[in-house]
Deep mutational scan, measured.
Amino acid sequence: LPHTAVCLVCGEAGKEDTVEEEEGKFNLMLMECSICNEIIHPGCLKIKESEGVVNDELPNCWECPKC
């Protein structure tokens, strides 16, 4: 993702460097949905019932829970 990318919900950049544990890092890193192209911190999504499908081949790419 470009350095200028920010979260659609909170308007902040990736914050994964501020935590140690892997789950915390994931919730604070910016992810781009391969379907709707929205860039968001997974932790900013209010959807709890399902998780997005992470694409292991492309960094910061997933199918968000909304899609």
Rank of each mutant, 00 (worst) to 15 (best):
P2M: 14
P2D: 15
P2A: 15
H3P: 08
H3M: 15
H3F: 04
T4R: 00
T4H: 00
A5Y: 15
A5K: 12
V6F: 02
V6Q: 03
C7L: 01
V9Y: 03
V9K: 13
V9S: 09
V9I: 15
V9N: 15
V9M: 10
C10E: 05
C10Q: 03
G11V: 00
G11D: 02
E12D: 09
E12V: 05
E12H: 01
A13K: 14
G14T: 06
K15D: 00
E16T: 14
E16C: 02
D17G: 13
D17F: 11
T18D: 03
T18L: 11
T18S: 09
V19Y: 05
V19W: 04
E20L: 08
E21H: 15
E21N: 01
E21S: 15
E22G: 11
E23C: 07
G24Y: 14
K25M: 06
K25L: 03
F26L: 05
F26R: 11
N27D: 10
N27G: 09
N27W: 07
L28G: 10
L28D: 10
M29S: 12
M29I: 02
M29W: 03
M29P: 06
L30H: 02
M31W: 06
M31L: 10
E32Q: 08
E32L: 12
C33F: 00
S34W: 03
S34M: 07
I35C: 09
C36W: 00
C36F: 00
N37A: 13
E38T: 02
E38N: 04
E38W: 08
I39L: 09
I39A: 11
I40Q: 07
I40G: 06
H41Q: 00
H41T: 01
H41C: 01
P42G: 05
P42R: 08
P42D: 02
C44R: 01
L45T: 09
L45W: 03
L45E: 03
K46D: 15
K46W: 08
K46V: 10
I47R: 07
I47K: 08
K48Y: 12
K48R: 08
G52L: 08
G52Y: 10
G52S: 08
G52R: 13
V54H: 01
D56M: 14
E57N: 08
L58H: 14
P59Q: 11
P59L: 10
N60I: 07
C61A: 13
C61G: 07
E63L: 10
C64V: 00
C64G: 00
P65T: 02
C67L: 00
